[in-house]
């Protein structure tokens, strides 16, 4: 019942892991050399939101008008209730219903 790991898998996943960890730690270590005020700081403060927005917008757009509706509902629910889980479920429900009905 205990499967063996193929050496190729060991290497491929190992390399992926090294790359990912280096990026995680590298960003943190490099940042301590960045300036802590002025324009650069403004950019770094805007970064988290901009990054998350960039992460989701193409996937929302890929679902078309209903994707936008689902995202809008998710945003409204999280603003009203501060409940991320409920907001997520509402968004998923819209997409589920749309796909079920084949819209």
């Amino acid at each position: 019942m205990f499967p063996a790991i193929n050496p190729q898998v060991l290497i491929a996943v190992g390399l992926a892991a090294c790359v990912t960890y280096s990026l995680r730690l590298g960003g943190l270590l490099l940042a301590s050399r960045f300036p802590r005020s002025g324009r650069f700081r403004r950019g770094m403060d805007a970064l988290p939101g901009a990054l998350l927005f960039s992460l989701v917008l193409p996937s929302i757009a890929a679902e078309g008008v209903w994707g936008l509706m689902a995202a809008a509902l998710t945003a409204i629910v999280v603003l009203r209730t501060r409940n991320t889980l409920a907001a997520m479920l509402c968004g998923m429900l819209v997409i589920f219903a749309v796909r079920k009905m084949g819209l």
Binding site: L55, I60, V78, M92
Partner: peptide
């Protein structure tokens, strides 16, 4: 997508 939309709003 849904959970990260909610997080982005936050």
């Amino acid at each position: 997508t849904a959970v990260f939309t909610a997080l982005a709003v936050g």
